[in-house]
């Protein structure tokens, strides 16, 4: 059970944060199909940052001296760097779709093509292979929080909650959850959030009340880019052993599905991310999941192919789309370039 919850969280958290990234862009009126591309780019930048920092003797010293605070700081810093570069990368999308009023779908597709190409080009030049890994060690030994990290004895039993939430976890997971909550409040309970959302529903009305639609759309897309970039790095760190390979296994598109399934609302998105994360987790490791610890591998005995679990999120999303399209809460003005002259 502990394993199941932890694994599900590992998959669900990047999905959740990237789906929120999608919400920020769409609420401001820009369709961000480039989530996948920005994730790939963010993952690359984060991994490269960690790799470069590992070349610093002080950091290596901190690792061998087991100064966990420094290492967790490095992790946070890498997340920040990934977010900044994700935001910068997303400026390409906002520039095309806000200033040049381009087709947002095509612009997003362009970024989705550009990110893996650019990343693989650089990765191949840096490391002579298609994977960029950490310079030394692995993600678990560097960044994972364990019992011993927190000062407990190796054999200490922390109870169910303790074992689940404090042993073999990543700080990034919790930071993302906190960020998710804070940003949801920002989007729904503050003046800024209201203004941002108004630009996605009726930009003309927003403009008539003195809101700068262009600025708001830039803000929405940039926050979106930052979150997606960070989410990409968190994905690479927690599920891909801190390596960048020029793809995130379709997580960006899955996040898009989460966003639609969650009907563009943060609460539902968190739930949807957990469900889809569970599917991912089950697909990845169902033969070894023992749900209630009685030695019966129920999921393996069900004999359902892992391919079905991988496929389910997309099928469910398509079905949900089909049934809810009439009362969808999709922002009304998404995808439509704002033209001041148009009424």
């Amino acid at each position: 059970m502990t394993f199941l919850i932890q694994q599900t969280l590992l998959y669900a958290v990047p999905l959740m944060i990237v789906a929120l990234a999608g919400v920020f862009a769409e609420r401001s009126g820009i369709i961000n199909l480039a989530l996948e591309g920005i994730m790939i780019f963010g993952a690359f930048v984060g991994v490269l940052f960690v790799r470069l920092m590992q070349g610093n003797p002080a950091i290596m010293g901190a690792f061998s001296a087991k100064q966990w605070v420094t290492l967790q700081g490095l992790e946070l810093l890498a997340m920040l760097v990934a977010a900044v570069f994700g935001a910068l990368f997303s400026l390409l999308l906002s520039f095309a779709s806000v200033n040049l009023r381009a087709d947002q779908t095509i612009g997003g597709t362009a970024l989705n093509l550009m990110a893996p190409a650019l990343v693989l080009f650089l990765v191949r030049i840096i490391s002579n292979q298609n994977t960029l890994q950490m310079a030394s060690g692995d993600a678990a030994s560097w960044f994972m929080i364990k019992k011993t990290t927190l000062g407990f004895d190796r054999k200490a039993d922390l109870g169910f909650l303790g074992n689940t939430l404090l042993h073999q976890v990543y700080l990034a997971t919790y930071i993302c959850i906190i960020l998710f909550v804070v940003l949801s409040i920002l989007l729904y309970k503050t003046k800024f959030g209201l203004r941002l959302r108004s630009c996605g529903e009726n930009p003309q009305a927003a403009d008539s009340l003195g809101i700068n639609v262009y600025k708001m759309r830039y803000a929405g897309t940039t926050i979106s880019g930052a979150l997606a970039g960070m989410g990409g790095f968190v994905y690479a760190l927690t599920t891909a052993n801190c390596a960048s390979t020029g793809d995130v296994a379709g997580f960006g598109f899955l996040a898009l599905a989460v966003m639609i399934f969650g009907n563009w609302k943060p609460g539902n998105i968190a739930g949807a991310a957990l469900i889809f994360g569970l599917f991912k987790c089950v697909a990845a490791s169902y033969p070894s999941i023992d749900i209630n610890g009685d030695g019966v591998y129920l999921l393996a005995e069900l004999g359902i192919s892992s391919h079905l679990y991988r496929m389910l999120p997309y099928i469910i999303t398509l079905v949900v789309l089909a049934f809810t399209s009439k009362k969808s809460r999709a922002p009304k003005a998404e995808g439509i370039p704002y033209d001041k002259g148009q009424r």
Partner: peptide, 15 residues
């Protein structure tokens, strides 16, 4: 992969 970068730039511009 440089040619994929070129292709993506072309898509971006054609947007």
């Amino acid at each position: 992969y440089i040619t994929d970068v070129i292709i993506s730039v072309i898509v971006y511009l054609s947007a």
